[in-house]
């Protein structure tokens, strides 16, 4: 479905991404893991056509990445949606939450007012938020609620692929877990493909079937999640990332 071939990106002459190539099939879920500065967010921006690659190709269902013309962009975004990292400013602060969520429906569909309202309410409930919140401005929401609202907004137009760029990184641990569980259930229900970008390997089991590790803009390895703890087969860098949480784990097992 999504096909990335020999993708390179340079910013101010500095290589950010080098020779990235992978694909995502219908309903598949892939995780991209790397430290900050590994180029994983740039990759998300390239797939969302918010930046243009220096060279290489991105195809979705055979269509190339849009570069001009509103119509081709619209077509692209109808199929691919993204949830950004929680910075508290990805929803327009001057609009009510209902208006924020209505936005993609106005732009992508021909629903009338009543249908739009019905849809927004449906998805608002699906991500587990209270109907009364819809009248508020985005600033009233807590971090967890904010990300749920963004998720609902991304899912409203029923995209085929959802990209989550560090979606849970700024949240408390319990909220992270709830969010991952919500994603798993929605993915099962809607059968959408998922590209989950994170720095935390421990979030992935249960959510993603494949993992790609990114280091300084280069693809280190791509493997099935079931082989994650198979240290003999893993790249040394992947093992280092895994071991980051090991020292906590040892202390933990000692006391519980």
């Amino acid at each position: 479905m999504l096909e990335i071939q020999r993708l390179y990106k340079e910013i101010h002459g500095r290589p950010i991404l080098q020779d990235i190539h992978f694909g995502i099939e219908d309903g598949e879920s892939l995780a991209i893991v790397g430290e900050s500065g590994s180029g994983k967010s740039t990759l998300a921006q390239l797939i969302m056509a918010l930046k243009q690659p220096t060279s290489g190709h991105i195809f979705f269902d055979g269509r190339p990445l849009p570069s001009k013309g509103i119509l081709s962009y619209r077509e692209w975004y109808r199929d691919i949606q993204i949830v950004f990292q929680n910075t508290g400013s990805t929803l327009n602060p001057a609009m009510s939450l209902f208006q924020c969520l209505e936005e993609p429906l106005i732009n992508f569909t021909r629903y009338n007012r009543a249908e739009r309202k019905h849809k927004v309410l449906e998805y608002w409930g699906k991500v587990g938020l209270n109907e009364n919140l819809l009248r508020n401005r985005p600033g009233k929401l807590s971090g967890g609620q904010y990300q749920r609202a963004c998720l609902a907004k991304a899912l409203l137009t029923r995209p085929k692929l959802l990209i989550c760029d560090e979606m849970v990184s700024n949240l408390d641990v319990l909220l992270q877990q709830q969010m991952i569980e919500l994603l798993i259930s929605i993915q099962k229900e809607q059968g959408l493909a998922l590209l989950f970008i994170t720095h935390d390997l421990t979030l992935l089991p249960g959510l993603c079937s494949n993992i790609m590790v990114l280091k300084e803009g280069k693809q280190v390895e791509l493997f099935s999640t079931s082989a994650l703890y198979d240290e003999a087969e893993r790249d040394p860098y992947t093992v280092t990332l895994l071991n980051s949480s090991k020292m906590f784990e040892t202390a933990w097992n000692q006391w519980t």
């Binding site: 641990v173 319990l174 877990q177 421990t202 089991p205 249960g206 959510l207 993603c208 079937s209 999640t225 079931s226 994650l228 703890y229 949480s245 784990e249 933990w252 097992n253 519980t256």
Partner: peptide, 20 residues
């Protein structure tokens, strides 16, 4: 208790990954 449960869950695995 919930926090503790959550932390233990993060180490589920080492061979028995819930995702098949």
């Amino acid at each position: 208790q919930e926090l503790c449960r959550h932390c233990s869950q993060r180490f589920l695995g080492k061979g028995e990954i819930p995702y098949a």
